[in-house]
């Protein structure tokens, strides 16, 4: 029995164990210091869901052999574009979210295809290239946002053409999923509907990975030589993985935005891919393997810590800027940890 527990802990990994303990410690401190425990837990749950698809997007990318998708920023920008167009065309209610997701997915698929082709030329250094492609694309999109011929006043910059920095969503799909089937138990709001939607995406991805096409994609990702011997096209499967990743990112940012209440444009998506990468790595993924389980755990731990560290830091050292400092240290620290892990694997 004891050995079983020790074996289980070993598989869990020391890094994940420490972070899980930190997570639990924060929860306890929140409770002990009486820092509106219920509200904090609600916040953690919402953040878990709102970041979920962005992190899930890492899975197809890793499994198809392209490494962690540091360029998920491309998909994110496509999702934002989908959101802007959906509002521009005047969709409201549920349709505004659905149409945004459809527009976003189409753009993401196209961009993902082109970007996947690029990745096939630079096999082996995908993640480095991805980071800079992501940065460059955000800047390119800044130009697009400025010149987009918008007619809807709620989207337009006050001075004339172009889209606003932050587009308010309260009139359209803002908080729509947050409130969908939400249940309140003991002051804690549980976004049941939102969780179900995220679970549905997990099931869909799982079904794909278990299909013939999904299996072949994973073979191409794990061992290109092996794939060649079975005449599985490595390049085509890498493009497929990249497209899936981009589409999930596009829908993911819309989920994020509806929770947040705004579409954040211009340079806001710049470092979003890093947060998703950090989360999936915390969940136990590596640059060669990633599972849905890694996503579930990693998103909860990473975003939970970010959500809780702020009120805790504020309570421990009030009237200081500590909360912000802690937030930066935690998020960047985890990314640094993640990057050292990549180094070790190569």
């Amino acid at each position: 029995m004891n050995e079983k527990i020790i074996g289980g802990l070993k598989r869990f990994g020391s890094a994940r164990l420490i972070i899980s303990l930190f997570f639990i410690a924060l929860l306890v401190i929140t409770y002990v210091l009486d820092l509106s425990f219920a509200a904090t837990v609600s916040d953690v749950l919402i953040r878990w869901c709102m970041n979920f698809l962005l992190v899930l997007a890492m899975v197809p990318s890793v499994l198809s052999g392209c490494g962690l998708n540091f360029a998920s920023t491309l998909g994110i920008c496509c999702g934002l574009l989908g959101g802007v167009l959906s509002l521009e065309f005047g969709f409201t209610g549920v349709m505004s979210l659905i149409m945004a997701a459809i527009f976003g997915s189409v753009f993401a698929a196209v961009i993902g295809g082109i970007y996947g082709k690029l990745l096939n030329y630079i096999k082996g250094s995908e993640m480095m290239i991805a980071t800079y492609v992501g940065f460059a694309f955000v800047s390119l999109m800044c130009i697009v946002w400025v010149f987009l011929p918008i007619t809807n006043d709620s989207l337009r910059l006050a001075m004339g053409g172009g889209v606003r920095l932050n587009v308010e969503l309260s009139a359209t799909f803002g908080e729509m999923l947050n409130n969908f089937l939400a249940v309140e138990i003991g002051g804690i709001t549980i976004p049941v509907g939102f969780m179900l939607v995220c679970a549905a995406f997990c099931v869909l991805l799982r079904l794909f990975l278990n299909s013939r096409a999904g299996r072949l994609m994973q073979v191409a990702g794990e061992n290109p030589k092996f794939a060649k011997a079975l005449d599985i096209s490595v390049n085509r499967n890498r493009i497929l993985g990249t497209i899936l990743s981009m589409v999930l990112s596009a829908i993911g940012i819309l989920f994020y935005a509806q929770s947040y209440g705004f579409l954040q444009l211009y340079t806001a998506p710049l470092r979003m891919s890093f947060l998703a990468v950090a989360a999936v790595l915390i969940g136990g993924a590596t640059t060669r393997r990633a599972s849905i389980g890694n996503v579930v755990l990693g998103t909860l731990l990473f975003n939970g810590i970010l959500a809780m560290s702020t009120p805790v830091a504020n309570a421990l050292a009030p009237d200081s800027n500590l909360a912000e400092i802690v937030r930066i240290i935690v998020s960047n620290g985890i990314i640094v940890y993640a990057l050292t892990k990549i180094k070790r694997e190569v």
């Binding site: 013939r212 299996r215 794990e222 005449d231 393997r289």
Partner: peptide
């Protein structure tokens, strides 16, 4: 270890994958 095996996959996955790809068996 290169062309022959998927080292990070199970024995059953290794055995089945060729037939899945070529003959669409096991699906």
């Amino acid at each position: 270890k290169g062309t022959g095996l998927l080292l990070d996959n199970s024995i059953e996955a290794n055995i089945a994958i060729a037939a899945i790809k070529v003959q669409k068996k096991y699906i």
